[in-house]
């Protein structure tokens, strides 16, 4: 029993910590707006409105078209605050909140 002591303590601590973690209030996860990006933008840079074509709004990213390499934005996600009511980017200065698919 003695040799399991530290392990048992570790498991109990882990369960306690994760329990506290789940109590913490979290903001509601809103589904990103996914856009197919034409032209060459590296992740972290603003995308022009004309180069972003709306695909869908969903929690997980769509596959996109021709996203098979690793240099430029291919499918990019934007928050609701960055998109207008016609599902277009608000202006030419919106930086993607995530870029799950890349292309060359």
């Amino acid at each position: 029993m003695k040799k399991y002591f530290l392990g048992i303590i570790a498991v109990l601590l882990a369960v306690c910590f994760s329990a506290f973690n789940s109590i913490k209030e979290k903001p509601k996860l809103t589904d990103p707006y996914w856009f197919q990006i034409s032209n060459q933008y590296t992740p972290g840079h603003a995308v022009k409105q004309a180069d972003a074509a709306f695909i869908q709004q969903s929690l997980t990213a769509p596959l996109g078209t021709g996203c098979t390499a690793s240099t430029y934005d291919c499918v990019a996600g934007f928050d609701a605050t960055q998109v207008n009511s016609s599902n277009q980017l608000k202006d030419n200065s919106q930086v993607p909140s995530s870029v799950p698919r890349l292309k060359n």
Binding site: L6, G7, I9, A10, V11, L13, A14, F17, S18
Partner: peptide, 11 residues
Amino acid sequence: ISALFILLFVY
């Protein structure tokens, strides 16, 4: 060390 890893992985 194993207790630390158990804590990390279970958490």
